[in-house]
């Protein structure tokens, strides 16, 4: 008996040492769901449309039209059948696992169905494009029912008019995109053929209410970290001539400087009526802290585009 007792203790300790659920934070995943637990692997459950399996996700809706990289608190809510204890969710082709959260109380308007709601954050580096968002319900034994799925458009950081999700949507003629690697305040600007500078002070060239050329935002403005470190100048219908692109470090924001890349994307029209944005050129460089000038000095010339 004594030997058995010691053995049991040792085996118990070993089992406990090997047990446990791994990686509860998973902050490097494509999406992070609030107040939910992360499990590695494919989402369990039968293929969407399989009939007669319990528990079921009876309905679900997205609280957003497009999921933007880095967006927070995007809502997904729905109902599940009475046998459900929890629901799981993942993008079929993104990340390395799925998220699980307990279902809530019965829906007072639809008796017999339990409510659930998930709030998710999208990773900054989530792949743009159309992705299937799958959900499934689990019963009291942890057994999954049939999966449901909906296509979700994950937008690009580039202002491409959602061409990444809908290839028939026409993107801008050219996009100049400046990205950098620290939370320093960098500015992208362009000098038009007539000598006008478009940048953080004068953001767009308008004609009949339409932006022919525009700057889409001021990245890390006033040293306020935005998680993007990105500025784009969009050329929809630019006047002909030579457009010169410049970058400047407005404020190093306490950093030693920043490495930057300017990438030029150009619209390509395909014979089948679809479009794409192709990278045609890129320029790399570095600003050091001593170059920060608050906009007082001349910016650094990077390249030019001929229209």
């Amino acid at each position: 008996m004594r030997t058995l007792g010691l053995s049991s203790l040792l085996v118990g300790a070993l089992l406990a040492a090997c047990g446990g659920t791994e990686d509860p934070l998973a902050i490097d995943e494509a999406i992070v769901v609030h107040q939910a637990d992360f499990k590695r692997g494919e989402l369990p459950g039968a293929a969407p449309g399989t009939a007669g399996l319990e528990p079921r996700v009876t309905s679900y809706t997205l609280g957003f039209g497009v999921l933007r990289p880095g967006s927070v608190n995007a809502q997904v809510s729905g109902r599940a059948s009475q046998a459900a204890y929890s629901v799981g969710l993942r993008f079929r082709d993104q990340g390395s696992g799925f998220w699980v959260r307990s279902v809530g109380a019965e829906d007072p308007l639809i008796p017999g169905e339990l409510q659930w709601q998930l709030s998710l954050d999208a990773a900054v580096d989530i792949a743009p494009g159309l992705h299937e968002l799958e959900v499934v319900a689990f019963d009291v034994d942890g057994k999954a029912g049939a999966k449901s799925s909906l296509p979700v458009c994950v937008a690009s950081e580039l202002p491409d008019n959602l061409n990444v999700c809908n290839p028939t949507a026409q993107p801008p003629l050219v996009v100049a995109s400046l990205s950098w690697n620290t939370d320093s305040d960098l500015d992208l600007s362009v000098v038009a053929p007539d000598g006008t500078t478009y940048g953080r002070s004068k953001r767009s060239l308008l004609q009949a209410g339409k932006a022919l050329v525009r700057l889409d935002g001021d990245g890390v403005s006033g040293c306020l970290a935005d998680g993007r470190r990105l500025e784009n100048i969009v050329f929809n219908e630019p006047p002909a001539g030579t457009w010169r692109l410049y970058a400047n470090i407005f404020d190093a924001c306490g950093k030693t400087g920043a490495n930057f890349t300017l990438t030029i994307f150009q619209r390509r029209a395909n014979p089948d009526g679809t479009f794409a944005l192709d990278e045609v050129r890129s320029v790399d460089g570095r600003f050091v802290r001593a170059q920060a000038n608050g906009g007082a000095a001349s910016p650094l010339y990077l390249t030019e585009i001929q229209f």
């Binding site: 406990a16 047990g19 446990g20 659920t21 791994e22 990686d23 509860p24 637990d37 499990k39 369990p44 204890y85 929890s86 799981g88 699980v100 959260r101 307990s102 279902v103 689990f138 019963d139 009291v140 034994d141 942890g142 999954a144």
Partner: peptide, 11 residues
Amino acid sequence: RDTRGVPTDVK
């Protein structure tokens, strides 16, 4: 939490 949403041991 396990897949049922029941609290369980974390590694």
